[in-house]
Amino acid sequence: MLAGSQNRVQCTEIVLFGVNVAMSWAAVQGWFHKLASPPHFYVTAGRWVPWLGASTVVLLAVGLGWSLFIAPLDQYQGASTRIMYLHVPAAWMSIFVYLVMAGSAAVGLVWRMRLAEVIAASSAPLGAWFTFLALATGSLWGKPMWGTWWVWDARLTSELLLLFLYLGFMALQAAIPDRRAGARASALLALVGVVNIPIIHFSVVWWNTLHQPSSILRLGKPTIHPSILWPLLVMAIAFKLYYMTVVLLRARCALLERERSSAWVQQIVTEQIALCHPLR
């Protein structure tokens, strides 16, 4: 008798749990579908942008102050280590943005979601700039450290190839007149790139170890001291927030442009005109 009621309780619990999961899954799906609708995204992103932008500015100020004035100097490298606080987050972002771009491109390719295509297209120039920034700061750091602007170091070389992949993505997208066909073609290219990036990276590492052993000077200590790690992390988060802010801004702008003939854009334009010229 007791065992039976226990069983029933268990059954009910399982059923309730299942209903819960189903409901939250439905909620997630609903949220996803809602967010994927361009007008809803436009409004939501517009609400997020000021907060994201403000926290970017605060974190960037804190991170720059900390890393440029407070963080200790390396015993051997002197003040030129400080460029690391820009170089390393930029290099991290160059890979991170490519993954975000390829991920959203894949979502756009599979579910034909316009918002995902817009996010991928808006991410590409940002990722390319982060890659360029990583290359430029690496080169500036290389001059005092290695005595030359450019070294065919494995990381620099694969970073350069990553820049080419970004440029190819943008060039393909720009070359196809139909926006959506361009988005699908470049999405496929981004996915091919994701498969190839590890192969390219490891082949470059292999090539580099064959051709020029031990010309590389990395941070002297095997582990990073917290006094260097913390400002570095703050800078990394600031870079991520910057990316989120700008990608949302760019995506909003791109949505307005791509959907300019739709009713919701027309409505926004009319409202804006009414705001700017109240007398008309």
Binding site: G168, A185, N196, V204
Partner: peptide, 23 residues
Amino acid sequence: ALTVGLRRGGVLLSLLTLPLYVP
């Protein structure tokens, strides 16, 4: 295959292909 429908795909083709040829 990605550039087949484009009028001037030639230069674009080298930009898309050569980085993937590196390995």
